[in-house]
């Protein structure tokens, strides 16, 4: 039990006093807030399935203490439509479709949305693919994901 903690999750301001100090953002989102769209693939920083946006920056929620992100604005896959680049990324992934089982998809969508919104990063397709190396997919063979990214890289200049 600890100090109350304030977070803004998908546009909603929350104050919770039931979090553990050692709690990971991934567990807060999934188990306290019921936002199961954020996936746990490895819990060791290797797969990217747990990626969310913290103040717009892609972040591995499995390796982030919830207390470290106190006062920030968190966006999960459930709220990605509210991010400037979110709707386009969803459309590109859906049109392809760039998924099979979909387990990796929330992580890809959040990481890509973050990249497209990040100042200073280049949005050429080759860069975007390179910058998503932290996201693993066990199903698609990546071709469809790369095609979806290609569509975005071309459109969102």
């Amino acid at each position: 039990m600890s100090q109350p903690i304030r977070l803004t999750v998908n546009g909603t301001d929350l104050e919770r006093s039931d979090l553990d100090d050692a709690e990971r953002l991934l567990d807060t989102l999934r188990w306290r807030l019921g936002l199961k769209g954020t996936k746990e693939g490895c819990r060791t920083g290797d797969c990217g399935a747990c990626t969310v946006l913290v103040d717009g920056e892609s972040t591995l929620s499995c390796l982030t203490l919830t207390r470290e992100v106190e006062g920030t604005r968190i966006t999960t896959i459930e709220g990605v439509r509210g991010e400037p680049a979110g709707p386009n990324v969803l459309t590109a992934f859906g049109a392809e479709p760039a998924l099979q089982c979909g387990y990796c998809t929330p992580g890809f969508v959040m990481a890509l949305t973050g990249l497209l919104q990040e100042e200073g990063s280049t949005h050429r397709t080759s860069n975007l693919v390179d910058e998503l190396e932290g996201n693993l997919c066990r199903c698609t063979g990546y071709r469809s994901i790369i095609r979806a990214i290609g569509a975005l890289g071309d459109e969102l200049r």
């Binding site: 920083g45 990217g48 990626t51 913290v54 920056e57 892609s58 972040t59 591995l60 390796l63 982030t64 990481a111 973050g114 990249l115 910058e131 998503l132 190396e133 932290g134 996201n135």
Partner: peptide, 9 residues
């Protein structure tokens, strides 16, 4: 080092 989401922290 790692991927972008890791390098953000």
């Amino acid at each position: 080092v790692g991927g972008v989401p890791l390098r953000h922290r």
